[in-house]
Nucleic acid binder design. Sequence first.
DNA 1: CTGGTAAACGAACGTTCGTGCTTTTTTATA
DNA 2: TATAAAAAAGCACGAACGTTCGTTTACCAG
Lengths: 190, 190
Amino acid sequence: MTPVTQKGSETRASILDRAVDLASVEGLEGLTIGRLATELRMSKSGLFAHFGSKQELQLATVEAAALRFRDKVIVPSLDAPEGAPRIRAMGNRYLDQMGDYSGGCFWAATSAEYDDRPGPVRDAIASALDAWLGELERQARVAGVERPERFAFELYALIMGVNSRYRLSGDERVFEYAREALDRLLAELP
Amino acid sequence: MTPVTQKGSETRASILDRAVDLASVEGLEGLTIGRLATELRMSKSGLFAHFGSKQELQLATVEAAALRFRDKVIVPSLDAPEGAPRIRAMGNRYLDQMGDYSGGCFWAATSAEYDDRPGPVRDAIASALDAWLGELERQARVAGVERPERFAFELYALIMGVNSRYRLSGDERVFEYAREALDRLLAELP
DNA sequence: CTGGTAAACGAACGTTCGTGCTTTTTTATA
DNA sequence: TATAAAAAAGCACGAACGTTCGTTTACCAG
């Protein structure tokens, strides 16, 4: 009979959960199988067997980060009506989550790490970010923005800028600046 | 008699020049003494002797990157009058230089790498970026901007956003978006 | 109870990392 | 040109990296 939950997939999920946190701090190259195993009180080889190679672990980590992003930012914003309210909801969700204890933004860390490093990992990161930009653009279009790609870029830049400045200088005023700038962007709507 | 140029300091300079390029791609952790030595056709130990530790090499690399930034972005902008014209000049210089040779922006790569990694290297990166933000802020103040810190943050976010998006997606429209947004920011001036 | 399979393990591999020591080569000046 | 200092190289180290191997444990089907 087919078991309802395989033991292995639970382990795999808990590995990836920790891997996303670790990679947010150390990067996907700095993410080390040995360290991951130590933190999870597993053997290196046992952990390794779940993925077969470091690159497969990295790709699985990117995928897990995308799922977490969906859960923490996208899904909770679906309550808000499409267009301006949802844009505001997503922006706020993202900014809120950034102040968390968590190791900073996975996407800011890894996209900067891989932007000059061709390969499947970079491609996975790029397509996840493209999807996020695309969603922002789609909502901007619904909101009646005249140039949705420009709008999406500016919003993206603001959010990444907040992450960068807040993480490095600890200056909390940047949250205020970003929310004001978002207001200014949304105020242009017809 | 005092020699006009010491051999060692030339070598050191050429090491750091290459180190900045390498760190822009691989990060300051991925910057490896062995690889640096191989590329410069030196022995690991000979190169190592110039710095004494990897951390000293990293700190010297940050310093060299700051000097290069000064030469490529700040100094050429000093022709422009202070205030709005100089802000525009610095922004354009930065954007121009970004399309240059591969390697991307040293500061974008390393600040994301070290924002969760306490220590002297992080401090050096942070203070260099603070100086850059401070200069933007100072020019904004001269230009009569009502809230120079907010202005400086938005400009910083735009420039880093361009770097991030251009490096990852190759979309050249972001340059246009950023220049438009800068125009919009400057148009608010009294 | 038995047999088979999935999961985790411990040990070891070859390589590369940063870092010491010692020796050789190069450079600058008396 | 001789010589002392500076620069570079050679060699070796312990640790950590990703990876492979053979083995042991846990679980479920017959």
